[in-house]
Design a protein around this nucleic acid. Structure first.
Ligand SMILES: [Mn+2]
Ligand SMILES: [Mn+2]
Ligand SMILES: [Mn+2]
Ligand SMILES: [Mn+2]
Lengths: 230, 230
DNA sequence: TACCTAATTTAGGTATACCTAAATAGCAAT
DNA sequence: ATTGCTATTTAGGTATACCTAAATTAGGTA
């Protein structure tokens, strides 16, 4: 069978490709390479090429693809990607707020469920949560209309020299890292006083009104976004 | 790849076959024919044969299969089937109680999500609901240990002559029927006064302390279970 | 016992989403 | 302009879960 006449050609796999293109393309929506997609999705590069060609050739193309030049999302592709991200972040918020999940467990569950909930489910949990704008990791939740509010913040790894910041968001990707950050108090909204460091050497920060200093590796600093002040 | 060494060979499809065998086999766990499975699952009989042979040939067989003689669940198959039924019924209860779904919409959503929630999700919604024993349609929720409490009740279609009954459960399978039953007050716990009828001709019943009589087709009567008294 | 029919199984396909290995294309340094 | 390497694509497979059409079988009937 031809999978559905009216553009509703979704699948868990396709959804994940679209999300990956959205995320790797960044705010400027740059073209994304097959290799980076392969790495992100944990599949072989050849599989990516295949899928991209399929997505580009669909009745309603989900990506714009040019051989050897990477892809970007089409309008339809972006719409679906944002819909799935909305699901993901609403589910995370719901698991955290309503079902009392530990913060580091919400991502994995949301990563699966995001593809299978109905519009009704989405609407109901949004209502139950009071139409939240931010998820438990500090990320913007796209609106029902498919708008993703942009927020101004910088990656901690870009910070040079001392200063005081507030944690805007923390990557949800690595549960173990999240657990450690949680343990040292580096959570959304926390005050961070950078004492010294750089992306190359890592940072020494003081958290909240804590007494001791905390070490943050350069790698971890790349997963934390902050805003100036505090 | 070989799908998983340790018996964890589940998939949405397999889960649905196991549930169907459980349900069609009845309390006596009779052998179930390919044809009835094909009908229930909406697939071709040949597809059923294929799947049954696969399930029977697995490292840990999920069914006992004999050519031309139907199947029954193995211990492992029954365990998984009951696990999925537990998911289904907990999800329905959750959607109904916590997310305020209309009763006739819970089944379809549960039918999908039952395959994708984690053990943690199961545990958390069970806790949130106070470890319920009955779902919104009046069906027993299997325990965490895989026990399904048996309840004594009869199908309304088996009722002969007049009498008073209480609705124990209503099939969740057909949303439209459920909406109509809801509208005429035939819901779990309702008092039913059977005025006349039979499975062949349908029934005339008085509901609760309602004044008017309600007609229930023989077909619908097969989807309602009642207990004597009220 | 031979026959008939309905249920079931076998055989041969399709589509999705992967994979490995073998081309090929882009591009940068000689 | 070549060379050489890496990124990417093509070609050819695998596994799952379906399907249709063509056997085959189990039972019951004549
Ligand atoms: Mn997440
Ligand atoms: Mn996902
Ligand atoms: Mn149900
Ligand atoms: Mn299901």
């Amino acid at each position: 069978m031809a999978a559905g006449r009216r553009g509703d050609v979704h699948s868990e796999s396709i959804d994940n490709y679209l999300k990956a293109v959205l995320s790797l393309g960044g705010p400027e929506e740059q073209r994304v390479t097959s290799t980076s997609l392969a790495e992100r999705l944990g599949v072989a590069p050849a599989s990516v090429t295949n899928m991209l060609q399929k997505l580009a050739a669909a009745e309603t193309p989900l990506v714009e693809y040019e051989r050897h030049k990477g892809v970007r999302l089409s309008a339809a592709g972006r719409r679906r990607a944002l819909e799935v991200v909305r699901h993901h972040r609403l589910i995370e918020t719901f698991l955290y707020e309503v079902l009392d999940y530990p913060i580091e467990e919400v991502h994995e569950e949301a990563e699966r469920l995001e593809h299978f909930i109905s519009e009704r489910f989405e609407e109901r949990i949004a209502a139950k949560l009071g139409h939240p704008k931010i998820d438990p990791h500090g990320h913007s939740i796209p609106t029902m209309e498919g708008e993703m509010p942009r927020r101004e913040s910088i990656v901690l790894a870009e910070v040079m020299g001392v200063g005081t910041y507030v944690v805007e968001s923390v990557s949800d990707r690595d549960a173990e890292r999240l657990r450690q950050l949680e343990a040292s108090g580096i959570t959304v909204g926390a005050r961070l006083e950078v004492r010294r460091g750089s992306a190359a050497e890592g940072y020494t920060v003081r958290v909240g009104r804590g007494l001791g200093d905390v070490e943050v590796s350069g790698e971890t600093a790349r997963e934390i976004r902050v805003v100036v002040g505090g």
